[in-house]
Design a protein around this nucleic acid. Sequence first.
DNA 1: GACATGCCGTACACCCCTGTATGGAATGAC
DNA 2: GTCATTCCATACAGGGGTGTACGGCATGTC
Lengths: 206, 206
Amino acid sequence: MTIQYCTDMARRHLTPQDWSTAALRAMARGGVAAVSVNALAGELEATRGSFYWHFKDRDALLTAALEVWERDDTTALIAALGDITDPRQRLAALFTIALGQEDINGLEPAIVAHADHPAVAPVLRRVTERRIAYLTDLYTELGLDTAAARRQAVAAYAAFLGWLELRRSACDIVPEVAATGTIATVALEHLIAELTPCAMHQAEPE
Amino acid sequence: MTIQYCTDMARRHLTPQDWSTAALRAMARGGVAAVSVNALAGELEATRGSFYWHFKDRDALLTAALEVWERDDTTALIAALGDITDPRQRLAALFTIALGQEDINGLEPAIVAHADHPAVAPVLRRVTERRIAYLTDLYTELGLDTAAARRQAVAAYAAFLGWLELRRSACDIVPEVAATGTIATVALEHLIAELTPCAMHQAEPE
DNA sequence: GACATGCCGTACACCCCTGTATGGAATGAC
DNA sequence: GTCATTCCATACAGGGGTGTACGGCATGTC
């Protein structure tokens, strides 16, 4: 019985990035417990021997994957908005990008659901602090005082999280949450227009 | 070596309700995977023999626990609001109760995170439909037309879910999300006053 | 062409969880 | 007191996941 190794084509080597993104996909589906080396190896058409070459542990994969999430969905996103000068356009672009290019559906709810996990807690804390601080600065730039900007940032971020959660749990029941095109308009209506009317007009000359 | 059975006091028998609530607590901490018969037996100071007397399967426990969640946090909650005639007071009481008496912290995010699980999907679908339908009716009673009421219901429910998620993930970073006293005021400001200003005044005579 | 090294497949031991079978303690009926 | 029933503890087999040891196939170097 001959074992066939690479029948299809030149099998390219797996990178730690491949394992990390596969781990994030698995986490979005079934939580932290779904990130099993066995399942990921099957999905990547490899074996666990490949995994333990790139990573020391399963915990090392978890932290690496969550750092990828932190880098892509928070650090890089904020950095991409740096060149937009108008704060209103920056706010609009922020939620448009965050809601529009959601790469892995259900990842954020899965991460938040395991907030107590030792591999999740520090990254989630950094991400939440960074995002709320950025939103607070943005609302301050829009003319709100410190307390009001903070409140708006918390409310907007909660609405954002709930929007993602609703998209994950009931994209068939609530179809308006699924279409990428309407997300921009609906989200901007609810997050910008409606979450800031009480203090917006005295800051807006128009 | 004598085995001591009931040293402390008359050990009352465990009910399926005990197992269900313990399952919900475990699910809130570590997701569906944390609902293990072993762990729950240790928490309840019993053995798996007791469990398999009350339940056929682990899946039977999951569905029973989720039905308890559906009954307590949706059916009973809506039923408790039936005697409030004023829709504005009913809306205020709804979010006050839903946000105030959150019995198990982090349960809703955990359930939503496993929306694809076969034991979760049907219950979550029923709960989401029921809640959004109730909110839609409530906003309709408040004077909104069908489309607007539906949009407000979806937005308010998303904000509610995100508020719970933020409370779970960052109650230390965002302290305003934890205090039960301020929840009522903040939630009512953001959910009633701010989510319905565009169409509220023409329905409100005052 | 010998040799080192990067990358991966395989096999083994170990642990945790599930489900079932079986026995035993406690309680009430009579 | 006997007996049946309820409820629970214990023991066992089976499966799946982890981590490690080891062996093998490549590719590049000299």
